[in-house]
Design a binder for these strands. Structure first.
Length: 428
RNA sequence: UCCGGUGUAGCUCAGUCGGUAGAGCAGGUGGCUGUUAACCACCCUGUCCGCGGUUCGAGUCCGUGCACCGGAGCCA
């Protein structure tokens, strides 16, 4: 019977076959230890000459790291650590691997990135990408089960959505197209048809950013809700993050152990989030020694300083309109600020979510488009949202890779995606 | 784009005052019945990032280009 490694615990003392790849191979004179991986988990196979005979024993000696092998044996427990292992009776060599570049020793970043297609076989990368998948599932489950309709927004777009970040240009027959930097503008028109919507896909920023927080291609999930105000999406972002954390804490214990990720800080994030206005945040930062002045955006250091003060994520709201995109609704109580919000993850991770309430007046938006020196012609279709049944509405975007980096406590987002795309990194 | 750093064997690195290349791992051979980054012995492995310069002589010093790493700005 062929079983997955993760199911070995259900077959104690039974004879089963597992198929997978060799991660380590240790040889003694009359006993060999073969560590195997099949994607579902890891286990050890014990090959003793007294059990298999000389021919099979000799055949097993030829196995190299990352060879594909089918191993048949009896499930037992390691006498030392009680882990489930396979006492081998027979094995089939499916493919003997050439010397594998990514050895079980240390490697540098460039080498590992050049071998990304092989690197993600390693245990740590496996754990990260499994957590990523669990988060993706949680994201879809959360919105699907709360009556949101998935609206797939285009990746090829005719113009800049926000006009701030740099865009990747591509030839589009005789025309020029740009890779989408957000789906939001395409999401808003869908509100009047579906009420609550979200999109989830890759987005692209041609920023020449060289930091631990940036990729040029990254995945973003963006919910948008009709008749919602700033307060509604602040609450939504909290329950959304709570749900993701509950899922990974329940299902990813093995992965967190591999990553040596202490889950206590994550459990503390299941409490209500800290809230403060931008103005309060600036005061707090200045008290903590930052030289930030009102009206300028947080620097990377500011986010780090602020998030290290609290154990829960921080919802910062009501930013000066000077450094926010054109489409935010102004605060009725203070026209210097807009109804935007950012969610800053703890442990120094910083911005994971950004969003806010969108402007609903067509005249105000036209004014803002002019002030931001954007071409109104390109936004006529977007302005139509405000011409035919305009309403208050709000939404946010969450960067998947930043969320994964925080939850796994990784030093860099490049390990959170199977094939990272960064400044100076387009391969493999 | 700016600031700082690195570039030597397949990988990770050492290389003194400028004197002609080195260790561990990987690979190969042999040994070992409870190992788990196994261990022991032996063997194999080089465009010292490229180009130019100084020098009797450059991995080493100088100039320059390239690649990568870290940070900044911008953002999710």
């Amino acid at each position: 019977m062929i079983v997955s490694i993760s199911a070995l615990k259900d077959h104690l003392d039974q004879e089963v076959t597992i198929r997978g790849w060799t991660t380590h191979h240790r040889k003694s004179g009359k006993i060999q230890f073969l560590n195997m991986r099949d994607g579902s988990g890891y286990t050890q196979c014990v090959i003793a000459i007294q059990d298999v005979g000389e021919a099979i024993f000799e055949k097993a000696k030829t196995i190299t790291q990352e060879s594909a092998v089918a191993v048949t044996g009896t499930v037992s427990q390691n006498p030392r650590n009680q882990q489930f292992e396979l006492v081998v009776k027979d094995l089939e060599l499916i493919h003997i691997a050439e010397p594998f570049p990514v050895t079980n020793k240390e490697h540098g970043t460039e080498f590992l990135m050049d071998h990304r297609h092989l690197w993600f076989r390693s245990k740590r990368q496996w754990a990260i990408l499994r957590v990523r998948h669990r988060i993706v599932r949680a994201i879809r489950d959360f919105f699907d089960s709360h009556a949101y309709t998935l609206i797939d927004t285009p990746i090829l777009t005719p113009t800049a959505a926000e006009g701030t970040s740099n865009l990747f240009k591509v030839d589009y027959f005789e025309d020029t197209a740009y890779l989408a930097q957000t789906g939001q503008l395409y999401l808003e028109p869908a509100l009047a048809a579906f009420g609550k919507v979200y999109c989830f896909g890759p987005t692209f920023r041609a920023e020449k950013s060289k930091t631990r927080r940036h990729l040029t291609e990254f995945w973003m999930v963006e919910p948008e809700i009709a008749f919602a105000h700033l307060e509604d999406i602040m609450q939504l972002s909290q329950s959304f993050i709570h749900y993701i954390l509950e899922c990974v804490l329940a299902d990813c214990q093995m992965e967190f152990e591999v990553l040596e990720r202490d889950t206590e800080p994550l459990k503390k994030c299941l409490q209500p989030f800290i809230r403060m206005s931008y103005t309060e945040a600036v005061e707090k930062l200045r008290a903590l020694g930052s030289d930030i002045t009102w009206g300028t955006d947080f620097g990377g250091d500011d986010e780090t300083i602020l998030t290290q003060e609290y154990e829960q994520p921080i919802l910062v709201h009501r930013f000066p309109k000077t450094f926010k995109a054109f489409y935010f609704e102004p605060d009725p109580d203070n026209h210097e600020v807009v109804l935007g919000m950012d969610l800053l993850a703890p442990e120094g991770y910083g911005e994971v979510i950004g969003g806010g309430e969108r402007a609903s007046s067509v005249d105000f938006l036209i004014e803002q488009i002019a002030k931001h020196e954007l071409n109104q012609e390109h936004y006529e279709w977007y302005l139509d949202v405000r011409r035919y049944g305009s309403m208050p509405h709000a939404g946010f975007g969450m960067g998947l890779e930043r969320a994964v980096a925080w939850i796994c406590k990784l030093p860099h987002v490049r390990e959170t995606i199977p094939y990272p795309r960064m400044l100076y990194r387009l391969k493999p």
